[in-house]
């Protein structure tokens, strides 16, 4: 081992030099970057669920490092999703037909955009339900349910962390979308499956969308 090291180390440093000389932005040889691609080419673009599952698994493990608790972990997943929501709002509105290319102006319109267009884009199916809180004390709360979130498909949360729902990442996307549309909100993901045997949807998740007070106030003002 010792004799091979002096031979190896100059080679190692050489390759490192080469690498550092190539650092910076990389351009493909034909000069076409991702920015040259048309934004509308979307219909048939699907990704492998397995590769997404591995990537998302690593994202969860990454978020799990140096966290103090489950809420902290969910916050991190939420933060990872937030910028995606912001950007998807722009992209998906741009892809809408020209007539409906406007930003949603009402809570319902926004949530419908999220549960249909955004959900279809991300998971190729609409969300399973959209409900308004029936409690008169919390008019700012809405619920989006997904019977089987795609991000949770292969994830089994251990018993000692049973409050965790990794769909917090999707909640972050929804939150980013709401924020970007000018409806600041807090979105959290909650598992509602009871863990009973033979349950139809053991992974059912409810995304609780809690708009800020001024949004509800504005909505009431606009509603007249």
């Amino acid at each position: 081992m010792a004799s091979s090291q002096p031979i190896k180390s100059p080679m190692g440093s050489q390759s490192q030099n080469q690498r550092s000389s190539q650092q910076g932005l990389k351009y493909p040889s034909n000069g076409k970057t991702i920015y040259h691609r048309p934004l509308n080419r979307s219909r048939t673009q699907e990704l492998s669920q397995a590769s997404f599952a591995y990537l998302f698994g690593e994202m969860v493990s990454y978020a799990q490092k140096r966290v103090t608790g489950i809420q902290d972990l969910e916050k991190r997943l939420n933060n990872q999703g937030h910028p995606i929501g912001l950007k998807l709002l722009d992209l998906l509105l741009y892809r809408e037909p020209a007539r409906s290319q406007t930003r949603p102006l009402h809570i319902i319109a926004l949530l419908q955009f999220i549960t249909t267009t955004l959900w279809r884009h991300l998971f190729s199916r609409p969300a399973d339900a959209l409900e308004k809180s029936s409690n008169p004390d919390t008019p700012e709360e809405y619920m989006i349910s997904d019977n089987e979130p795609l991000v949770n498909q292969y994830i089994s949360v251990p018993k000692e962390m049973n409050q965790l729902n990794c769909a917090a990442y999707v909640a972050g996307i929804v939150e980013g979308c709401c924020d970007g549309a000018g409806f600041p909100a807090k979105v959290t993901a909650h598992s509602v499956g009871k863990g009973e045997e033979g349950e139809l949807w053991p992974g059912k998740t409810v995304f609780l969308v809690k708009f800020q007070d001024e949004v509800v106030e504005r909505e009431a003002f606009l509603g007249r």
């Binding site: 599952a53 998302f56 969860v60 493990s61 994830i155």
Partner: peptide, 23 residues
């Protein structure tokens, strides 16, 4: 391969305790 290896809470070579796999 799906429900154990793709689960971020499973550590390699350790006993398998994944509810999704079991089910």
């Amino acid at each position: 391969a799906d429900y154990v290896m793709k689960n971020p809470f499973y550590s390699l070579e350790m006993p398998v305790r994944c509810e999704g796999w079991e089910r």
